[in-house]
Design a binder for these strands. Structure first.
Length: 105
DNA sequence: AACCTGACTTCGG
DNA sequence: TCCGAAGCCAGGT
């Protein structure tokens, strides 16, 4: 496990309840703005193991990246539970819910 | 060591 | 605006 991967976990854990972050954003916080795919891989492989709030990470378009037959519904349900609202097309208003590491915490 | 894969992103047609 | 292709990174085979 690389240092970068460790930082990804630390970053994800910092995302506040009721807010979301994009894969690229998490990657940037962890020190490599180009490693979005690696962030996805980390969540996929060790979210359960480390109790990460994996559902708070979505793609840059404000959509859930999971396929409908995979965890899509579960992730959406978890976000709704935290008070996050979805538009009709299933997207999230990033202007409103995106985590700002410098202001929130 | 080479090759494949994915819960991503960006750019060009 | 909507795909498809090409980048990118690390772990698994």
């Amino acid at each position: 496990m690389t240092a970068f991967t460790e930082r990804v976990k630390d970053t994800v854990i910092r995302i506040p309840k009721g807010r979301v972050a994009t894969y690229a954003q998490v990657a940037a916080c962890a020190g490599d703005h180009r490693a979005a795919r690696q962030v996805a891989w980390v969540l996929h492989s060790s979210s359960r193991k480390y109790g990460l709030p994996w559902h708070r990470v979505i793609n840059s378009r404000g959509h859930i990246s999971l396929k409908p037959n995979q965890g899509y519904a579960r992730q959406k349900a978890l976000l709704l539970t935290e008070g996050i609202m979805f538009r009709e097309d299933g997207s999230i208003n990033l202007e409103r819910y995106l985590w700002n590491p410098h202001i929130d915490m």
